[in-house]
Design a protein around this nucleic acid. Structure first.
Lengths: 256, 256
DNA sequence: GCGCTTATATTGTCATACTTATTCGACTGT
DNA sequence: ACAGTCGAATAAGTATGACAATATAAGCGC
């Protein structure tokens, strides 16, 4: 059984670094991640029954308490449902809470597929466009200053990690400025998307791409500064679409 | 201690009926709902430490196992974080998974506020507009037929429950047709929004409103049928905005 | 007054026993 | 043969008590 070291399957390291909230403090999260990843990766397909308590206990060599807490956590994220005498069933995908950061992370651990990145970009466009528009209407002056400052940091970033961190900061500030709690709640999504994209190719390594990315973000900030909701929408759409296009293009190239 | 009957605080009954997945089968979900509601309602503010295990054990008169599973579930939804010697801290709101159906339900149990309904409408607009546009591009013929059939059922609905059910069905089908798993994953959100809106005022009780609502949904379906993404976007926006406006208007009237 | 150690409180983990719910199949009566 | 009832078997749910790990804070020696 791969304890402790078995977590960095794909781009897990960068994800862990960026997300800050470091994993693996306690035993039960080990079990949780193993099972969660196994389910998301299709090792236990939707609708299937996973092994009974006794067998899993044997496999992970942990106490019943730990195992059951891991299962309860999975249940809370909508991945499984336990029923007496039947066992623990893997729920259909549309019941999974895809906006959960753990569930998202498990998806990325099996290697980002283009189709998944595209789905991610599509929801981001939907949500963040509205966030940008609302931010244009509701931003405070402090938030406006913050946006400009973050852009400066992006432009001066030297490492992919720094760039990603400030990029994420920018989007978080926009979500915050929208005054809508739901918008702020999806930063996990943005985080994963950015991390995935930068794992594939960071603008920092391509001068023209960097200039371009910074320019697009400045356009968003300018629109929000000017309280121009329409322009903010459009600029945000461009920013997300371009980010996805660059990553997708790079993946295509790598596969040929 | 209010076991079993203590759940229907506000519009809980309708919510329970609509959501289908009935609550309250086991002990631990009782504790879960009590604590979850207490946190969301601000009884334990963000950043505060909730009582230690021993005290909660006393209060709920359950075993440690049950209590800890409830806490783990709350942690999985991003509401709390436990650390040894420190205690169990309520996380800041932006860490909460607002897209979780339980967390949403707890918000509604304390009475839907206009501002919360508005935030809900804003995200729905963001996401469902994109879903409608994508559905227009990707729908299968079967899905198109399904949309039309659902509209017929909406038009003929006699009770608020029936109407809400078919309305929800419609939005679910659109999300499905978008081919984006994230879109399908937010049906919990739509469910709550619709339930809340209909709890306040159902179109079934107002003939003109019913005609209007059905017409707007037919416009969405027509646009998707015609593979017209632009029109689908706009029609969806109107549908959500109108639904929110009706509920908000009714609440204003009730408060004056 | 400073740094190290130790006490203490709180969550984390373990092991085991018992309870409850649900299914399946055997049994019984018609 | 058939339908309904009852009971055994199985898996999750609950309970309990003990011990381990961890992080704060108090105390101690220097």
């Amino acid at each position: 059984m791969d304890r402790s070291g078995g977590r960095a399957r794909h781009s897990g390291d960068l994800i862990a670094i960026l997300s800050g909230r470091n994993r693996a403090r306690n035993l039960h999260s080990d079990v949780l991640w193993d099972l969660g990843f196994a389910i998301v990766s299709g090792q236990y397909p939707e609708g299937s029954i996973l092994p009974p308590d006794t067998e899993l206990l044997e496999r992970f060599r942990v106490s019943r308490t730990v195992l059951r807490e891991a299962l309860k956590t999975l249940a809370a994220k909508g991945l499984i449902e336990a029923r007496a005498r039947i066992g623990t069933r893997v729920l259909p995908r549309n019941r999974w809470n895809l906006f959960d950061s753990d569930v998202l992370a498990w998806h990325f651990e099996l290697g980002p597929e283009v189709s998944f990145l595209q789905s991610l970009a599509e929801v981001r466009i939907g949500i963040e466009i509205e966030a940008a528009a609302l931010a244009a209407e509701r931003r405070s002056d402090d938030q406006a200053v913050g946006l400009l400052a973050t852009i400066e940091l992006m432009a001066k970033a030297k490492t992919p990690e720094d760039f990603a961190r400030h990029d994420l900061d920018f989007h978080k500030t926009v979500a915050d400025a929208s005054g809508n709690p739901f918008m702020a709640s999806i930063s996990a999504l943005v985080e994963m998307a950015l991390t995935a994209a930068f794992t594939i190719s960071s603008p920092v390594n391509e001068p023209e791409a960097l200039t371009q990315t910074v320019a697009v973000h400045r356009a968003i900030a300018d629109a929000i500064l000017a309280r121009d909701a329409i322009a903010a929408r459009e600029a945000m759409r461009v920013a997300i679409a371009e980010g996805f296009a660059r990553a997708a293009g790079r993946m295509e190239a790598a596969n040929s």
